[in-house]
Design a protein around this nucleic acid. Sequence first.
DNA 1: CTTTTATTTCTGCATATACAGAAATAAAGG
DNA 2: CCTTTATTTCTGTATATGCAGAAATAAAAG
Lengths: 164, 164
Amino acid sequence: MGSQWGVNRSVAQIHALLFLSVNPLNAEEISDQLGIARSNVSNSLKELVGWKLIRRVPVPGDRREHFVAEVDVWEMALRIAQGRKEREIDPAISAIDSCVEQAKKEPDLNPIVVARMHEMQDFLETADRWSNQMLNVPKSKLNMLMKMGDKVFSLLKLTGKKTE
Amino acid sequence: MGSQWGVNRSVAQIHALLFLSVNPLNAEEISDQLGIARSNVSNSLKELVGWKLIRRVPVPGDRREHFVAEVDVWEMALRIAQGRKEREIDPAISAIDSCVEQAKKEPDLNPIVVARMHEMQDFLETADRWSNQMLNVPKSKLNMLMKMGDKVFSLLKLTGKKTE
DNA sequence: CTTTTATTTCTGCATATACAGAAATAAAGG
DNA sequence: CCTTTATTTCTGTATATGCAGAAATAAAAG
């Protein structure tokens, strides 16, 4: 799956291994188990720590760094969502903002073009606010909300096909 | 932005061009405007059509195929979400299902490991149902819902930090 | 302070992806 | 049906990414 999700094979493999591992593993154990180079493990672990999908844990009486994965799947999903927002939405907002800025200086720009840029900007801002809020919903409630599924949708009278 | 969003430069460039273009463009115009090879344009257009972010439009009196982008940003977002679900969630479900299947055959597998696999499976199924529902919410209501933002959250009493 | 051991960064090769130009195919016009 | 024009597929090359092994750095032990 890794490549579809935007991480390379080693990263995906290591994450899977740690997710299914009952006890913390050190870099060498990972390297041996998966048969990938020690250096590669090091870089992959760094990336996974960056996504907050794993964390370092000290094992008493052992000098080596050990790692464990976040095992709560909802927490995992939140972290991934958070990471994606930072990597995809936030830079997109900066980009569109500077585009709009530039566009202001161009006097003879088709108004339709300017309008489209503004719609995009407005959308991204809304998406940003919304995701910030979603990411702050406590895990348990998120879980409940999604498990309830259709009940929530009919409660909010959101279903139907009127405009879409 | 392209690379961050999982598409290559040409695809992103062409999409941007069409999104900001007031009238339909044909492949050659795109090739000229952006200075990329005609063949590259062809493949990129195919990908964008696959995402349903652009569509072919016949221009009367012109044999060549012309293309226009979906200009409604909400519709665009829905299509991207749809595409990502198909590429990321659906195959992940197949993958976890076959893993769980395999695991059944392994009698001496640590129960904790099996439990984690099931949690993952359960989560993915929930996410699948949820996203299917979200994708069926009419655009206008989605827009409204997200614009209202915090009001919806407080209505549902979803905010707070209890368990997270 | 020196030696040992863990970890990270560097370097180079291998593989994969992006892309241009050529060739092939398909579609329309005469 | 043949010619012209549009479009797609194929092929080679350039570039980027992935990854191993070596070198360098950092940390702990003696």
